[in-house]
Amino acid sequence: MQSKDYNKYNVEDFLLDDQFREWVIRPDAAKHIELRNWITSNPSKSGIIEAARDIILSIEMGEAKKYEAKTEEMWEKLSQQLDTEEAKQLPVYRIETSKHQIHSFKRQPLYSAAAVFIGLLLITVAYLVYNNLYSHVTYTTAYGELKHIMLPDSSEVTINANSTLSYSADWSDEKAREVWIEGEAFFSVRKKPNARNAKFIVHSNNIGVEVLGTKFNVNNRRGHTRVVLNSGKVRLNLEEAGSEDYIMKPGELAEISDDGREVTKEMVKPENFTSWRHQQLVFDGSTIEEISQVLEDNYGYQVHIKNKELLSRKFQGTFPSDNPKILLKAIAESFGLVVTVNNNEIILESKP
């Protein structure tokens, strides 16, 4: 494919590439077939490509309107500066710039100064759009939705429902790979033995989960973090001052306290905690309270349990995650309950 090495491109490189910008505007044009084939063959670049594409489309569609108030203020200051006694003697012209409001300008030599100002203003707006909106690539899932993505280093992530994952749009071998998770995600991290900095760090609340090459699950909900290690080795970097780091073993579950100072660990069956990746919910002695939290966190339900004694009752079974009503029916039959579902509200109560 031509002489360009797109494998080395970051977001800024794509933004400056004429062929890429033309492809974003006219993706079906025949002359872009080579670029389209390269994009299809390089899924690991999808995050960077999407970020660059969104920036170009945002500018094209005029989505930088959020900065117009600031722009108008700057125009007003410019007009005041130009409105001198000398300028008042010159004819006034009006010019309209690409979907923005009409502004007043003066004839030369003041027109040249205004033209320079316009250029600087457009550069500033473009920088603000890029720096504020696209410095990170973000993926979000809705209730009941799973999403599988590939990171720029070819590590794979499956994001559970009602979760958000983000990472810097510009990864390199010169620095650690870092991602941020709110909700739950399963990571299969690819090793980078030849990189200067091979660290992979997942940030969750007040801890960092550091790995070199492994598979693990991070659940960050309700103010605390739970990590389950399927294979490999991870280090929990407790970010609270005075806390010691903790090395996890395969098959281990670690619960981190809300203040980030303590770690509670136990040996578990990791597949029970990562079954959601395969569209299954596995409960092995889970309490009704824990199950109700899953229904709220993953599906957006509000669960009300009339009899508080039910909260500690334990339940086990495997159910399809795409139909929570099957789970509710099984719970009702197991404990002799009446289950009422009204839109997003679930009520569990004992039979009369």
Score class of each variant (00 low, 15 high):
residue 172 S to Y: 02
residue 194 N to S: 15
residue 177 R to W: 09
residue 171 W to N: 04
residue 168 S to C: 08
residue 161 A to C: 08
residue 186 F to R: 00
residue 185 A to L: 08
residue 176 A to D: 02
residue 196 R to F: 13
residue 174 E to Q: 15
residue 176 A to Q: 04
residue 200 F to H: 03
residue 197 N to R: 10
residue 184 E to P: 13
residue 160 N to I: 09
residue 186 F to M: 03
residue 188 S to N: 15
residue 203 H to L: 04
residue 191 K to Y: 05
residue 186 F to D: 09
residue 163 S to G: 10
residue 168 S to H: 11
residue 169 A to E: 15
residue 196 R to T: 14
residue 177 R to G: 05
residue 180 W to I: 09
residue 158 T to A: 05
residue 178 E to M: 09
residue 171 W to R: 01
residue 161 A to L: 06
residue 191 K to H: 15
residue 193 P to E: 10
residue 160 N to Q: 08
residue 179 V to I: 11
residue 199 K to E: 12
residue 202 V to E: 03
residue 187 F to V: 04
residue 203 H to R: 09
residue 171 W to G: 00
residue 163 S to Y: 10
residue 191 K to E: 14
residue 183 G to I: 06
residue 179 V to E: 02
residue 172 S to V: 13
residue 203 H to Q: 11
residue 174 E to G: 14
residue 168 S to P: 00
residue 189 V to Y: 01
residue 159 I to G: 11
residue 161 A to I: 03
residue 158 T to N: 04
residue 185 A to H: 14
residue 170 D to V: 07
residue 187 F to Y: 10
residue 173 D to N: 14
residue 182 E to Y: 11
residue 193 P to Y: 09
residue 202 V to Q: 07
residue 173 D to P: 13
residue 195 A to E: 12
residue 174 E to I: 14
residue 164 T to N: 09
residue 194 N to H: 14
residue 200 F to I: 02
residue 169 A to I: 01
residue 181 I to L: 15
residue 202 V to H: 07
residue 176 A to W: 00
residue 164 T to A: 07
residue 188 S to C: 03
residue 195 A to C: 06
residue 189 V to K: 01
